[in-house]
Every structure is written in structure tokens, then in C-alpha cells.
């Protein structure tokens, strides 16, 4: 059913730390790697070795330059994937019931066997979280690695989304954002985690942590003393002679 379930107590999601992300795209690769062989059809590529390669990804990393009023510009790497919104517009527009939000933990999923590939859910999403797989003709999106997080065949430390597990910088955190005492909820409270495009009324579960405020720019030129060279001996004599000529 594409009616949204009543808000669940458990809200699984990600917290992404924009202060820590180094923009290595490891989460993109890990996501594609895991989701190529697990849940649903593989994430196809088109013309992968040609002049204009393209393909289906569930996670993309943008890089922005942010220029504050004062001080130097900052580079912010910005991973973008499904935010598992509480008020998910992609779910209610679906004509077939393929797009749904789980009542038990809030994960937004696509039942690929029922998806007709009309693309309306991708149009309804403000965040570009959904991509229509060009080979299979069905909509693909982040599953929050639902086939990892509950998978008892995996060691416990691996029961988290592939992107979180792989992040070498520790910029991605997974947990229950419906529980105010969870680590992720505390992190959001402490660091002022925010929603993307709140004007769209989607109520995202995933939160982003802003870059930490930078201190004043330090105008210390560590090379300055080295440039002021005083010559001595023969070189000093030559220096004085040459200046007089």
C-alpha cells in the first residue's frame, strides 16, 4: 500500500558529518558493490567503457565550495542518498503500491516486482534519491542495506549499511533516530544536525551535521624568516660589491 504508515517509534537512518567527510567516494563504491548483488536487480551501467558512461547509483558525493562572509572559502564534500523521509512524497504518488515505507522501522523501499518504472516517485523526490535502472526498468533507491542490518549471518560489526561500514573517515553514522537516547540522536543534538530542504515538508529521518565553525584566519607566514637571508663571508663580500656596482 502506498499510504504512509503512522509514524513509527523506530526511525532507522543515517547521520552524515559534513565536517569529517573527505570526499573519497568510498561510500559510493561500497554501496554499488553491495547493492549490485543483494537486494533486487543489479545496479546496471550503460556504456561503462565508452565516451559517455552512466549508471545507477544509490549514493552520490557532491563537492561544494562555501564562501563565508569573512575568511577563506571552505570545501564541503556532500554525500547525497535517500533520507527515508517520514512524510515521503515518493511513496504516496506510486500508482502500483511498489513504493512503500515500512511501518516497523521507517525504511523506504521499492518492491521491484510491482514497479512499472513510470518514474513518478523520482519526480516527487526533492533529493534525487531515486534512479530508474535503465536495464531493468525499475526504480532503485537506498535500502539502508536492509539485507545487512538485520542479517544474522554477518558478524555483528558488519550489520550496518555498507556505506557506514566502509567510511574511512567515520563521517557516516547509522542508528535509530526515533530514540532520543541513541548515539546518533545524541550526536544530532550535540552538533546541531539539520534537515535538507525543510521547505519541502518531507520530514527527513537522515540528518546532516554542519561543518564546525572555523577560528579566525591566521596570518602567520612560516617561510618569512627564511626569506630574509643575511649573507656572510665571501658571499657577503660579493653581495656588497655587486650592490655598489
Amino acid at each position: 500500500m502506498t499510504a504512509l504508515p503512522p509514524p513509527s517509534a523506530k526511525k532507522l537512518g543515517l547521520v552524515i558529518d559534513l565536517d569529517t567527510c573527505v570526499g573519497c567516494h568510498a561510500c559510493v563504491t561500497a554501496c554499488k558493490g553491495w547493492n549490485d548483488q543483494g537486494y533486487g536487480v543489479p545496479l546496471s551501467d550503460q556504456n561503462a567503457y565508452g565516451s559517455e558512461p552512466s549508471g545507477t547509483f544509490l549514493n552520490r558525493v557532491h563537492s561544494y565550495e562555501v564562501q563565508p562572509d569573512q575568511g577563506p572559502a571552505q570545501v564541503i564534500n556532500f554525500p547525497r542518498s535517500c533520507l527515508h523521509c517520514e512524510n515521503a512524497p515518493c511513496v504516496t504518488v506510486c500508482p502500483t503500491g511498489a513504493s512503500y515505507k515500512r511501518a516497523e522501522d521507517g525504511i523506504v523501499l521499492v518492491n521491484e516486482d510491482a514497479c512499472i518504472g513510470c518514474g513518478l516517485c523520482a519526480w516527487a523526490c526533492p533529493y534525487g534519491a531515486r534512479e530508474l535502472d535503465q536495464a531493468a526498468g525499475v526504480m532503485k533507491k537506498c535500502t539502508l542495506c536492509v539485507d545487512r542490518i538485520y542479517n544474522e549471518n554477518l558478524p555483528e560489526e558488519d550489520r550496518q549499511p555498507a556505506c557506514v561500514r566502509t567510511c574511512p573517515a567515520g563521517a557516516r553514522h547509522f542508528g535509530d533516530l526515533g530514540d532520543p537516547d541513541s548515539d546518533v540522536s545524541k550526536l544530532v543534538a550535540e552538533r546541531g544536525g539539520y534537515d535538507l530542504m525543510p521547505e519541502m515538508d518531507t520530514k527527513p529521518v537522515n540528518k546532516y551535521l554542519p561543518p564546525r565553525p572555523k577560528g579566525p584566519e591566521q596570518q602567520v607566514d612560516i617561510l618569512a624568516p627564511l626569506l630574509d637571508v643575511k649573507t656572510t663571508g665571501f658571499a657577503g663580500w660579493l653581495d656588497r660589491i655587486l650592490e655598489k656596482i
Binding site: 557532491h62 562555501v66 554542519p210
Partner: peptide, 15 residues
């Protein structure tokens, strides 16, 4: 608002 970075400064695409 899309990136939430508007409060930090002016946002432009770097890559």
C-alpha cells in the same frame, strides 16, 4: 537550503 550550507556562506559547485 538543499545542502543546508546556506547558513555557512555562499554555496557553489566545486566538483
Amino acid at each position: 537550503s538543499a545542502t543546508g550550507l546556506g547558513s555557512v556562506g555562499k554555496v557553489r559547485v566545486l566538483a
